[in-house]
Simulated assay, not measured.
Amino acid sequence: MSAAAFTVSASQFTGAKQRRALNARAVTASSSRRAVVAVAAGPKKIVIAGAPASGKGTQCELIVDKYGLEHISAGDLLRAAVAAGTDLGVRAKEFMDRGDLVPDEVVVGMVVEALDTDKAKSAGWLLDGYPRSASQADAITKEGIIPDSVILLDVPDDILVERVVGRRMDPETGKIYHLKFNPPPADVAARCTQRSDDTEEKAMNRLKVHHSNVEAVVGKYEGKINEIDGNRSKADVFADICGVIDEM
């Protein structure tokens, strides 16, 4: 795959750059939004947010390994429903294939059920990539799902598109690779697949949807936002995330 396949014109992301400028309000000298949240002793409740391919999945694995939180990915819940061919899965697939947000009524029940477990209640939880809109934030708040802290990963749009288009999954293990940054081993490459929504066109639509909703979500969790530069090594990003969690 050539580098040209990843090229995104500057005009397509002018609005995104303006939104990132808006994101810089209340910025500290380190160019990131940070909130030191006082949390009572007990299980931690964290949301990790960011555009598609911003690194949420990678960081969630590291967070879970270190802190033992129950990891709930709305995307995984939806993909499992699609794979199983459930009624909700069939409805969700229509939206996912276009890169649009799946309606709240399809997702909220899945998230609530996933968080209603002994482990989530005792060990704490990490809600991955959800909520993605103000209405979703309102819906889970009504169900008593209120995070202590929101970690927001910030990555430039052109990098995000490159990450998405080159992403591949091993269907046997579920492991995610990238044709450029983390190529699959030779004995695995032939069986790797590309998600139906991991095309440049759909990635750009997903980014458009993300940017149109992210500030509204941020507004719902004022005082709890920790914005972190996600365009660095996963170790550097994780170190900053640990700093946020350890300060809670």
Rank of each mutant, 00 (worst) to 15 (best):
M1S: 11
S2L: 11
S2A: 10
F6G: 14
Q18V: 14
R19W: 03
L22Q: 12
N23G: 14
A24M: 14
A24K: 13
R25M: 13
A26N: 05
R33G: 11
A38E: 08
V39G: 10
A40Y: 14
A41I: 14
A41G: 13
G42E: 04
G42H: 01
G42R: 02
P43G: 06
K44P: 00
K45V: 12
S54M: 08
S54K: 10
K56E: 05
G57N: 01
T58K: 01
E61C: 09
D65A: 15
K66G: 08
Y67I: 06
I72R: 03
S73Y: 10
S73R: 06
S73K: 01
A74Y: 01
L77F: 03
L78N: 05
A80I: 15
A80L: 12
A83H: 02
G85P: 04
G85D: 05
V90L: 08
V90C: 11
F95Q: 13
D97N: 09
R98G: 12
G99V: 10
V102F: 02
P103A: 00
D104C: 01
V107D: 02
V108W: 00
M110S: 10
V112K: 14
L115V: 01
L115F: 05
T117D: 07
T117Y: 07
A120Y: 02
K121V: 11
K121A: 10
S122V: 11
A123K: 10
L127M: 13
G129Q: 11
G129P: 09
G129S: 10
R132W: 07
S133P: 05
S135K: 06
A137P: 15
I140R: 08
I140P: 01
T141Q: 10
T141R: 15
K142N: 11
E143S: 07
I145Y: 05
I146G: 13
D148W: 03
D148F: 06
L152K: 07
V155K: 00
V155F: 00
I159R: 15
I159K: 08
I159H: 04
L160P: 02
L160C: 03
L160F: 01
V161P: 00
E162W: 01
V164K: 00
M169S: 06
T173H: 05
G174W: 11
K175N: 10
I176T: 15
Y177T: 04
Y177W: 04
H178P: 02
L179F: 06
F181Q: 08
P184W: 09
V188N: 12
R191P: 10
R191C: 02
T193R: 02
S196I: 08
A203D: 15
M204H: 15
M204F: 14
N205I: 08
R206E: 00
L207G: 03
H210Q: 03
H210Y: 08
N213P: 11
V214W: 05
A216H: 03
Y221T: 12
Y221G: 02
N226R: 00
N226H: 04
D229E: 03
D229M: 11
G230K: 09
G230F: 12
N231E: 11
R232L: 07
S233P: 05
F238P: 14
F238S: 13
A239D: 07
I241C: 04
V244M: 08
I245F: 05
D246Q: 15
D246C: 04
E247V: 12
M248V: 07
